[in-house]
């Protein structure tokens, strides 16, 4: 087994804010690896360090066996990156954007022209090759950027929030592309996302990151199975009483939140009536009851005690406070 990336105690501070806090993990060659977490969790900072755009405060990492601190140029040659924000020249055509990139990576002309045609065909933009990028839709731009990131045949491709701001249909389409790419070209793909579904659908393995720390790392299936079966969410004004009432042998795990209780158990549909009876006999009010298969969202909730959206709201507030403090 060869590692595409090895990350050891990687840390990055911005003044007194610890954006990435001592993270360590390895990524295998050919993996689609997801960094999942709310906005501001440190995903992009991690990616920027691995792509040598930002120097780590401490710690080390290798990409394709090349040290990011010792040989940043070597790393840059072997990676492709699609940034979170668009990075195309809108005044140029699709072809010119690709050509510019090919020249920057010093790809000889014939190979360059052949690959550009090949990649533009792959992302279904070859018929628009001579159109100015300004006329492209969000999805087309994203596809062009992915094609551009692949032009110099990188061994590792970084995708920072590849489907942010795209409509569901385009998103689905892009997921298929990325999955096909990984399979056909055998490249390692590392993507950041705060869409749980995206990580679940695409990634072989997922690292859940929050407040700059890795809180869980495994396959999406193992992460979800770790919750212990199906999830029953019981809404109630008195969650503590609900939790106390449900101390039964068939209940695997109970999590108490502010206005509900999440219960993990196998074959939940067979036990719903038992739950209702149990709570009714003790006269504990129930406002709602839902059963669902666990998602990565539930995994995040169980590890952090918050949903990803709540976490984002909180972190934005932190960021705002931080920026205000820096100004003064």
């Amino acid at each position: 087994m060869t590692f595409a990336l090895q990350i050891k105690n990687l840390t990055r501070h911005f003044n007194d804010l610890v954006a990435v806090d001592n993270i360590s993990f390895d990524i295998l060659q050919g993996e689609i690896f997801g960094l999942l977490g709310p906005n501001g969790a440190g995903k992009t900072t991690t990616l920027s360090m691995l792509a040598t755009m930002l120097t780590p405060t401490s710690g080390s990492a290798t990409v394709n066996g090349i040290d990011i601190k010792k040989d940043p140029d070597g790393v840059r040659k072997s990676i492709g990156i699609v940034f979170q924000d668009q990075s195309l020249d809108e005044e140029l055509t699709a072809w010119e954007n690709m050509d510019f990139h090919g020249r920057l990576y010093r790809i000889p002309k014939e190979i360059r022209n052949q690959r550009i045609t090949e990649l533009l065909t792959l992302v279904e933009l070859n018929d628009r090759r001579n159109d100015i990028v300004k006329t492209f839709s969000g999805g087309m731009r994203r596809r062009l950027e992915i094609a551009r990131g692949l032009l110099h045949h990188p061994a590792v491709l970084f995708l920072d929030e590849p489907t942010l701001g795209l409509d569901p249909q385009t998103r689905n389409h892009l997921w298929q592309y990325i999955a096909t790419l990984a399979k056909e070209k055998g490249i390692t793909i590392i993507l950041t996302t705060h869409y749980m579904e995206e990580a679940d659908r695409l990634c072989n393995r997922v690292a859940i990151i929050d407040h700059g720390k890795i809180i869980a790392i495994d396959t999406p299936k193992n992460l979800k199975d770790g919750l212990g079966g199906d999830l029953v969410t019981i809404g109630s004004p008195d969650p503590a009483a609900v939790a106390a009432a449900l101390k039964e042998p068939w209940v695997v795990r109970v999590e108490t939140h502010t206005d509900n209780v999440v219960v993990s158990l196998k074959n939940a549909d067979q036990y719903v009536s038992s739950i209702v009876t149990l709570l009714n006999t003790r006269q504990i009010p129930i406002t709602s009851i839902t059963i669902h298969k666990p998602t990565l969202e539930d995994v995040f909730l169980s590890f952090t005690g918050k949903t990803i959206r709540e976490q984002e709201a909180g972190q934005k507030e932190n960021m705002r406070m931080h920026i205000k403090m820096m100004r003064h």
């Binding site: 755009m53 070597g74 990075s87 195309l88 020249d89 920057l104």
Partner: peptide, 13 residues
């Protein structure tokens, strides 16, 4: 601002 500078700066040049 439009992000294109990143594309140039991340290249091995």
């Amino acid at each position: 601002q439009f992000g294109f500078l990143k594309e140039t700066l991340v290249a091995p040049v």
